[in-house]
Amino acid sequence: MRKMLKHMKAHLEKHNELFRWRKHPLTEATDLQSKTCSLHGRLMDVFCRTDQKCVCLLCALHEHKNHHSVSASEERADRQRKLMETREKFLQNVRDREKDFQELKQAEESVTCSAQTAVSESERIFSEVLCSVQKTSVCVTELIAERQREELSHIEGLQEKVQQKISDLRLKMSELDPFLTTEDHIHFLQNYPSDCEESTSEESEDLSNISENPKAFFCNVELLLSKLQERLMHVTKETAIKI
């Protein structure tokens, strides 16, 4: 115990000598074993940027004498800023994915509405013609439903991808939050996720084919049916006159 107190006293003296020209607050240490220099038995509160590791004051004065060293709090502040920027990028990616998801939801509603309109119109038209064309009406209805299923299946697949990206981004954000709140500089530096900045670039799903004009998916069906109606009515009238 006396030996530890002696080391702490010497540590504070060296600390004041090295950092007397700038602010360098002392914080209460936890898990002293992982934060104590194995070479000198002193607390590590200096960060060697040359070797990218935490060292004690004696290491900074001797083994790392000519290296670029700063206080742990200064390095923490610098990496804290980078981490905040990384988190902001994740947050922006979440917003972008949420926007994509909303566009997909709107496209889904538009496709469904367009499909229902096309089916209703086809039924209305074929109800006005002879019973001999009822089979064609049923066939057209099935084709519309199949196209609807294809489009909705495509949209649902994109929705799942966007939701998964949102979940992944939120998970990455939650993994960063403990680092942003901890006051333990050494724990922060020793466990800093060095690869987090490389994973912030997210590509948006290509929604150009979906969101361009989803209401017009089945316009061509309605147009073809209208022309068919005109031809059928013309044939009917002409046949009636001949009869």
Rank of each mutant, 00 (worst) to 15 (best):
N209T: 01
I210T: 14
S69R: 12
A118N: 08
K237L: 11
D206N: 15
N191F: 02
Q164S: 12
N209C: 03
L58H: 00
I144N: 03
M44L: 02
E146K: 13
S132C: 05
F126M: 03
S211M: 06
K65Q: 14
S122F: 00
F19L: 01
A216K: 12
S204D: 08
I243P: 04
T112V: 09
S73Y: 09
E203G: 10
A60P: 07
A216L: 07
S38R: 09
L225P: 08
V133D: 10
V133N: 05
E109S: 14
F217I: 15
L130M: 12
I155W: 07
N16E: 07
S201N: 14
E28C: 07
L5S: 14
F47T: 00
D195G: 02
G41M: 03
A107D: 05
H187P: 00
E230I: 09
Q148V: 00
R147E: 15
H62P: 00
V162Y: 01
C196K: 14
T141C: 14
D195I: 04
Q52P: 01
D168S: 13
E109C: 08
K242G: 02
R170F: 01
H185D: 15
S174D: 13
E75R: 06
E75K: 07
L18V: 15
S211Q: 12
D168W: 09
N220I: 04
Q134A: 00
N16Q: 10
R95P: 02
P214H: 05
V138N: 11
F19H: 03
S122P: 04
T50K: 10
E238N: 10
S73A: 14
L57Q: 09
D100C: 15
L223T: 12
K165S: 06
F217G: 04
S153C: 06
H40F: 07
E151V: 03
F90A: 01
E183G: 13
L57A: 04
L169P: 02
E156I: 04
T181W: 08
F101T: 09
M1T: 11
N220E: 12
L169A: 11
L180K: 15
M44R: 05
K65H: 12
S71W: 04
K227C: 13
E128F: 06
E74W: 00
L32I: 12
R22C: 06
A10L: 12
S153M: 04
S127A: 14
A216W: 01
S167E: 10
L171D: 14
E150M: 14
L143G: 05
K14E: 10
E88Q: 13
S211T: 14
L207Y: 07
C196D: 08
H154N: 06
E160H: 08
T236V: 03
S137I: 00
S132D: 13
M44P: 00
V162F: 03
S114H: 01
H185Q: 10
N209G: 02
E150I: 11
S127N: 09
T117H: 05
S194Y: 11
L158D: 01
R124S: 15
L130G: 11
D195L: 09
K99G: 06
P193Q: 04
I144A: 02
